[in-house]
Simulated scan of single mutants.
Amino acid sequence: MGPASITHEQLEAFDEVGIAELARRLEEDDYPTAFAGLGDWHLLRALAIHRPELARPYVHLVDQEPFDEE
C-alpha cells in the first residue's frame, strides 16, 4: 500500500486496537521482503499526521534516526 492509496476513510476507521497491531508488525519487522513493510510505515506516517492522538504512542516507529553511511 503506497501513500497515494491511503484514504481518509481508512484513517478514520483506525482505533487503538488497529494501530497497536500495525505498530506490532512494524516493531517485529517480520516482512517477507525489505520493502514489504513500507506500506505499513506509510500508513503509520499518515496516521501520525492525520490522527496524531492515536499514533502518539508509536511515533518512534515513524521517526528516522540519522546515521552515517560510511
Rank of each mutant, 00 (worst) to 15 (best):
G2R: 07
G2W: 02
G2Q: 08
P3A: 15
P3T: 14
A4Q: 11
A4N: 10
A4G: 06
A4W: 02
S5Y: 00
I6C: 06
H8L: 15
H8R: 15
H8T: 15
E9H: 11
Q10M: 15
Q10A: 12
Q10G: 01
L11M: 11
L11P: 01
L11K: 04
E12I: 02
E12D: 13
E12W: 03
A13Q: 10
A13D: 06
A13C: 02
F14A: 03
F14Y: 15
D15W: 09
D15H: 06
D15N: 14
D15S: 04
E16C: 01
E16A: 14
E16W: 13
V17T: 08
G18M: 03
G18R: 04
I19Q: 03
I19G: 01
I19K: 04
I19N: 01
A20S: 12
A20F: 03
E21D: 13
R24E: 06
R25G: 00
L26W: 02
E27F: 00
E27D: 06
E28D: 10
E28L: 15
D29G: 07
D29A: 15
D29W: 10
Y31R: 06
Y31L: 02
Y31T: 10
Y31P: 04
P32T: 14
P32H: 05
T33A: 05
T33N: 09
T33K: 05
A34M: 09
A34Y: 08
A34G: 12
A34V: 13
F35R: 13
F35I: 07
F35Q: 12
F35K: 11
A36T: 15
A36I: 07
A36N: 10
A36R: 12
A36L: 03
G37H: 09
L38H: 13
L38I: 12
L38D: 08
G39L: 05
G39M: 04
G39R: 05
D40W: 08
D40P: 00
W41V: 01
H42K: 07
H42I: 00
H42L: 07
H42V: 01
L43S: 02
L43D: 02
L43Y: 00
L44K: 10
L44V: 07
L44W: 09
R45T: 07
R45S: 11
R45P: 00
A46E: 15
A46D: 09
A46Q: 15
L47W: 06
L47M: 06
A48C: 13
A48F: 09
A48N: 10
I49W: 04
I49L: 09
I49H: 13
H50G: 02
R51C: 10
R51L: 11
P52G: 04
P52V: 10
P52E: 08
P52D: 08
E53Y: 12
L54Q: 07
L54C: 05
A55H: 06
A55Y: 07
R56E: 11
R56S: 05
P57F: 10
Y58A: 07
V59P: 00
V59Y: 04
V59F: 07
H60K: 10
H60Q: 09
H60V: 01
L61M: 05
L61E: 06
L61D: 07
L61I: 04
L61V: 02
V62M: 05
V62P: 01
V62F: 07
D63R: 14
D63Q: 11
D63K: 12
D63W: 08
D63T: 02
D63V: 05
Q64I: 10
Q64M: 09
Q64K: 08
E65W: 12
P66S: 12
P66G: 11
F67T: 09
D68C: 08
D68W: 14
D68K: 09
D68T: 13
